[in-house]
């Protein structure tokens, strides 16, 4: 994590990161509950990866959000922004109390990411399929300017059904963008049900391999595996890397897990009680 003087204090201790992930999960259900709407399911699945990126992996300065040499994180699956907002608040881009105004009139925290309103966002996303193209653009600019920054793009699995994803997959491979790393938050569910029932995306790792990407498959809730995959991505030269991060939608709250219904609805008051109880301890 970055401090005001710009010196990184990275957290690599896994028990500490698990505690942060626990707090972020609580932030997600609390902020969407206060909003009365939102997308908690796909936010919960992405927690460990986003925590690992901001606490262990990326270079950035919360006091200088537009620092030109910063690493970028682009949340192409923009509906999972409650997870990113919680992390941005916790690393110091804005006060934690802003989370309670998520989705409310005049808030800096919009229902989908708006870089003109939220400090720390590198892209305005929300409409699926576009974030990887945008990330490629940032990576290409870094190449021209000979900058060392890296670009991380988190994709959703339902998003694999968008044609532009494959246009941008070709661009990144054609341009050999090894300063770019995509992460597929593969929780297997989209609004209308399982990916494989809606419109199957398998074999997804083979698809990316055939598009000339380096592919790493991990358990996206295991910090050690996330670290290793990010390290492998950084070491991989001459092609972009995608981390196929197998996750569980709604991860951390028993009745939310693997339930498509929690893609786009927040918890009810009685559900909140149970969820808070379940999130009293970090996940194993």
């Amino acid at each position: 994590m970055n401090q005001s003087e710009g010196v990184m204090e990275r957290i690599t201790d896994i028990s500490q990161l698990k505690e942060i992930a626990r707090q972020v999960r609580l932030d997600i259900i609390e902020s969407t509950f206060a909003a009365g709407s939102g997308h908690p399911g796909g936010s919960m699945s992405a927690v460990e990866v986003i925590v690992a990126l901001y606490y262990r992996e990326m270079n950035y300065r919360p006091q200088e959000p537009h620092w030109p040499d910063r690493d970028r994180f682009i949340l192409s699956k923009g509906h999972a922004c409650p997870a990113q907002y919680a992390v941005l608040a916790r690393v110091g881009f804005f006060p934690h109390e802003e989370l309670k105004d998520l989705r409310k009139l005049g808030s800096i925290l919009q229902g989908h990411p708006d870089m003109l309103k939220t400090p720390g966002l590198d892209a305005s996303t929300g409409s699926l399929g576009m974030g990887l193209s945008y990330g490629n653009g940032v990576a290409l600019a870094g190449g021209i300017d000979r900058k060392d920054y890296r670009v991380y793009v988190m994709l959703g699995d339902g998003e694999m059904q968008e044609g532009e994803i494959w246009e941008s997959a070709m661009t990144a491979a054609h341009r050999k963008l090894d300063n770019l790393c995509a992460i597929l938050d593969y929780n297997k569910l989209q609004i209308d049900g399982f990916n494989e029932d809606v419109k199957g995306i398998e074999p997804i790792a083979d698809k990316w391999r055939s598009f000339n990407w380096h592919v790493v498959e991990i358990d996206g809730h295991d910090f050690r595996q996330i670290f290793d995959a990010l390290d492998e991505a950084r070491r991989t030269k001459g092609k972009p890397t995608i981390i196929v991060s197998h996750t569980i939608k709604g991860r951390g709250v028993s009745f939310m897990e693997k339930v498509a219904g929690f893609h786009g609805r927040c918890l009810k008051p009685d559900e909140m009680e149970t969820a808070r109880e379940e999130l009293r301890e970090p996940l194993p």
Partner: peptide, 27 residues
């Protein structure tokens, strides 16, 4: 070095241009 042939991918081209602009380029 400052020209990007994007192939027949107009949607990709537009969003790539957006990314370039966000990083200080004038696409």
């Amino acid at each position: 070095a400052r020209f990007f042939q994007m192939g027949i991918s107009e949607q990709d081209m537009v969003c790539t241009a957006a990314g370039l602009a966000s990083a200080g380029k004038l696409p």
